[in-house]
């Protein structure tokens, strides 16, 4: 029982991180109808910027305070993500208004390659570390309830808290602010939103920037756990089943989908994996999403699409 719960909690925490990446997908999809395959590349790009600036800034300014360096690096990395968002709107999206979803999807594959190439050219292609002072040691909890207690990684726990806070903040942003409402209007219909005076270009820059920030946070958390390296770009592929499961247009869907996939992956790996040779987490998530797709194509919380003739 203790072991099962540990696995479950581990899955939930991994799931929270998936949710964070999935959130980036959902934000952009809601506001521009673009399924952003480049979200993973954005995570890599943002994490590289963060790691490298935290290393460079103390040297440039001549101080040695790690905390200050991290804060400054975060600010600079956020600014970089803003520039990325602005360039993407300027150079790509503006030329593709009202194009088909498939074209937009393929264009983001191109953007992903661009970001990966540019990011590694600018910031280097080694493994870098991000040290934001996350505690690494595991703790035992609930020793009274289970023999031996539950072993939980503090780092995971803090990461999950941060992810949860960000998700909550973004939900509030979407529901309560004027910009958030404008975003939802744009998502429903580009042209209609334009005609009532919502500036499409600005909205897109904002939403790609917000997705960039989500990518930055995800990048910092994953990066401090595993190091910043090229494989970060593949988290997009890990988070893809999450959005399918949760529904592309739903923020709560991204969260719950992330948790389901996180838990499903861990449990399947621990309990089914050994029977078939292990390593099944990735495709298991996809198969789960696929089966789901066949019965409920719009996802758990997505909106149903009706075709008109």
């Amino acid at each position: 029982m203790g072991f099962f719960l540990e696995t479950l909690i581990g899955g939930l925490m991994a799931g929270m991180l998936y949710s964070l990446v999935a959130l980036g997908f959902v934000l952009i999809y809601k506001a521009s109808g673009v399924f952003n395959f480049a979200q993973g590349a954005m995570v890599l790009f943002a994490a590289l910027a963060m790691a490298r600036f935290a290393e460079w800034i103390p040297g440039w300014l001549g101080f040695e305070n790690q905390v200050l360096a991290n804060i400054l690096a975060f600010a600079v990395a956020a600014a970089v993500m803003f520039v990325v968002a602005w360039l993407i709107e300027r150079l790509v999206l503006r030329h593709l208004v009202n194009q088909e979803g498939a074209t937009l999807l393929m264009v983001t594959l191109g953007i992903a390659y661009l970001l990966e190439g540019i990011g590694q050219s600018l910031f280097g292609d080694n493994i870098y570390s991000i040290d934001v002072g996350m505690p690494k040691d595991p703790v035992l909890v609930l020793e009274g309830m289970f023999p031996g207690g539950l072993l939980i990684n503090k780092e995971d726990f803090i990461a999950a808290l941060i992810a949860a806070a960000l998700v909550a903040a973004l939900s509030l942003f979407f529901q309560k602010t004027a910009t958030g409402r404008a975003l939802r209007a744009v998502a429903d219909d580009h042209q209609a939103a334009q005609s009532i005076g919502i500036p499409l270009a600005r909205i897109w820059v904002i939403v790609w920037f917000v997705a960039g920030i989500a990518a930055l946070v995800a990048g910092i958390i994953w990066g401090s756990k595993l190091g910043v390296q090229f494989s970060l770009a593949t988290v997009a592929l890990r988070a893809l089943p999450v959005v399918i499961l949760g529904g592309l247009t739903s923020v709560p869907g991204a969260i719950i989908g992330g948790l389901i996939i996180g838990v499903g992956e861990k449990l399947s790996e621990v309990y089914i994996g050994p029977l078939v040779g292990g390593g099944i987490e990735i495709w298991f998530a996809y198969m789960l999403a696929l089966v789901f797709l066949l019965f409920r194509p719009q996802g758990l919380f997505g909106e149903k699409i009706i075709d008109r003739v």
Binding site: V107, G110, I111, Y113, L115, G117, S121
Partner: peptide, 21 residues
Amino acid sequence: TVGVSHSEFIIFGALIVFFLI
């Protein structure tokens, strides 16, 4: 050579975007 492989990524990415637009 690493620099070359990065520029490969950049050129592919740019071409995809270019052709689709």
